[in-house]
Simulated assay, not measured.
Amino acid sequence: MSEVSEGTGGANAAVVESAIPKEELARLTDDIISALKTVYDPEIPADIYELGLIYKIDIEDNREVKIDMTLTAPGCPVAGEMPGWVENAVSTVEGISGVEVAMVFDPPWTPERMSEEAQVAVGWY
């Protein structure tokens, strides 16, 4: 299994050993992140990855992807839809066997989790 834990926009990433070859794992990770960057929070003009809404990406040895994500607020109007958007986007990555998205609220999201790119997009930088 490989695990990428997300800090602010990908900072603080940690990778655990995997049965998947390093080159393939790097490609899968890049492709998954690219797919995540196609999903936007409808209330904020930035993608969910740069917003820091993705807490963890696990790539299992069987190539199943498990994602822990959060929302900017628990009462977000798209709370019921966004995990499906994430699953659909990541499902397009070649070489994965499936996607499971879990919604977590601990720790709660804060604006400090946003990357500089997202801060610029929302006019906070």
Rank of each mutant, 00 (worst) to 15 (best):
residue 18 S to W: 02
residue 42 P to W: 05
residue 28 L to K: 03
residue 55 Y to S: 09
residue 37 K to H: 06
residue 50 E to F: 09
residue 68 D to A: 11
residue 23 E to D: 15
residue 68 D to P: 07
residue 61 D to E: 08
residue 18 S to T: 15
residue 34 S to D: 14
residue 33 I to E: 02
residue 17 E to A: 14
residue 50 E to Q: 14
residue 65 V to I: 05
residue 21 P to G: 07
residue 63 R to G: 03
residue 57 I to V: 14
residue 56 K to G: 04
residue 32 I to R: 02
residue 42 P to N: 08
residue 59 I to V: 12
residue 43 E to A: 11
residue 71 L to C: 04
residue 59 I to W: 00
residue 28 L to M: 09
residue 73 A to Q: 13
residue 70 T to M: 03
residue 46 A to W: 06
residue 35 A to W: 01
residue 42 P to H: 07
residue 30 D to Y: 03
residue 35 A to C: 05
residue 34 S to C: 06
residue 47 D to T: 11
residue 53 L to C: 06
residue 35 A to D: 02
residue 71 L to R: 06
residue 42 P to V: 09
residue 51 L to S: 05
residue 58 D to W: 12
residue 50 E to T: 12
residue 66 K to N: 11
residue 35 A to G: 06
residue 73 A to T: 15
residue 41 D to M: 08
residue 58 D to L: 12
residue 73 A to C: 12
residue 47 D to Q: 10
residue 58 D to N: 14
residue 68 D to K: 12
residue 76 C to R: 09
residue 62 N to W: 03
residue 62 N to A: 08
residue 30 D to F: 05
residue 56 K to L: 13
residue 19 A to G: 15
residue 41 D to Q: 08
residue 21 P to T: 09
residue 22 K to D: 15
residue 46 A to L: 11
residue 20 I to T: 05
residue 32 I to V: 14
residue 37 K to Q: 15
residue 40 Y to M: 12
residue 26 A to Y: 02
residue 46 A to Y: 06
residue 29 T to G: 01
residue 31 D to M: 06
residue 19 A to E: 15
residue 32 I to L: 03
residue 69 M to A: 02
residue 48 I to Q: 02
residue 73 A to M: 13
residue 20 I to C: 01
residue 35 A to L: 04
residue 68 D to Q: 12
residue 42 P to T: 09
residue 68 D to M: 08
residue 70 T to R: 04
residue 20 I to K: 01
residue 44 I to G: 06
residue 58 D to V: 13
residue 57 I to P: 01
residue 72 T to L: 08
residue 36 L to T: 05
residue 67 I to T: 01
residue 38 T to H: 04
residue 26 A to D: 14
residue 20 I to H: 00
residue 48 I to P: 02
residue 72 T to M: 09
residue 69 M to I: 03
residue 41 D to I: 09
residue 59 I to M: 00
residue 21 P to R: 11
residue 65 V to D: 00
residue 22 K to Q: 14
residue 24 E to C: 07
residue 71 L to Q: 04
residue 72 T to E: 04
residue 39 V to E: 02
residue 50 E to C: 08
residue 47 D to W: 05
residue 46 A to E: 07
residue 48 I to A: 02
residue 16 V to K: 14
residue 55 Y to H: 13
residue 20 I to G: 00
residue 54 I to L: 01
residue 41 D to Y: 04
residue 45 P to N: 11
residue 26 A to C: 03
residue 31 D to I: 05
residue 34 S to F: 04
residue 75 G to V: 12
residue 30 D to N: 13
residue 55 Y to E: 05
residue 24 E to Y: 06
residue 70 T to I: 07
residue 76 C to D: 02
residue 34 S to E: 13
residue 38 T to N: 09
residue 33 I to N: 00
residue 31 D to L: 05
residue 51 L to F: 05
residue 36 L to H: 04
residue 72 T to I: 10
residue 46 A to M: 10
residue 26 A to R: 13
residue 21 P to Q: 08
residue 49 Y to H: 11
residue 19 A to H: 13
